[in-house]
């Protein structure tokens, strides 16, 4: 099977004042194209650090991350940025929309970054319609509710048809009902586009909906199982 993401012996150590802090300790796993994976674990287990390293937002202390066939741990910051722009989508717990851009402009950004300004607006409008914000194109993030902001974020994440989508607690800041709506949209869009989805979450219900669950504890992978075997 072709792996879209391969993590080998990944280690991240932070230099403290008096001692070193190992946040990730020789973590290894592979994720196949189209797979939907959740990374779970208690606070401080290294989930978000792992996500940041897999997406090329941070540099490992040692080990290797191969994303869409490229060893991103060897790339420069700008090259990593290019890999992200071409292959990766993001959804954040706190939405991370650009406050000075309208909903439509926020969704267009990844496409425009690729130089695909032509047609970007049409794709972005379609996606906003798809997430139920057809009448809110020109609204600024401040004028939208939390759920609406996360839906814009969803539309943005899929706008450049990413090969991998990283989601960091996508429903963590939303109430239960809104969370469900966003979850449903996430899985539906993912299915439509055939994207590989990697979700970091605390939420066991959300993890239960993924194909595979990687559990971290103390910076190490303690279990990596397919969904029907996840211990509740």
């Amino acid at each position: 099977m072709q792996h879209i993401l391969s993590v080998r012996e990944l280690t991240k150590i932070y230099q403290g004042v008096n001692r070193e802090l190992t946040v990730l300790d020789h973590v290894s796993f592979d994720i196949a194209r189209g797979e939907v994976v959740s990374i779970v674990g208690p606070s401080g287990s290294g989930k978000t650090t792992l996500l940041g390293l897999c997406a090329g937002l941070d540099a490992p202390s040692s080990g290797q991350v191969v994303l869409t066939g490229r060893d991103i741990s060897q790339l420069s910051e700008d090259d990593k940025a290019q890999v992200r722009n071409e292959n990766v989508g993001f959804i954040f717990q706190n939405f991370q929309l650009l406050p000075t851009l309208t909903a439509l402009e926020n969704v267009m950004i990844p496409l425009e970054l690729q130089g695909k300004a032509k047609g970007a607006a049409a794709i972005a409008k379609d996606l906003l319609d798809r997430v139920g914000l057809g009448d809110r194109h020109d609204h600024y993030p401040m004028q939208l509710s939390g759920g609406e902001q996360q839906r814009v974020s969803l539309a943005r994440a899929f706008s450049n048809s990413p090969k991998v989508l990283f989601a960091d607690e996508p429903t963590g800041n939303l109430d239960e009902d809104t969370g469900h709506v966003v979850e449903q949209l996430l899985f539906d869009l993912n299915k439509e586009q055939g994207t590989t989805l990697i979700i970091v979450t605390h939420n066991p219900d959300l993890a239960a909906k993924t194909d595979r669950v990687i559990r971290l504890k103390g910076g190490k992978v303690v279990s990596d199982v397919l969904n029907e075997k996840v211990a509740r």
């Binding site: 910051e77 890999v83 991370q96 650009l98």
Partner: peptide, 15 residues
């Protein structure tokens, strides 16, 4: 700074 971080995350080069 937060906007710049988002731009960078979405694949914008530093320059």
């Amino acid at each position: 700074i937060s906007s710049i971080a988002i731009f960078r995350c979405l694949g914008m080069k530093g320059s």
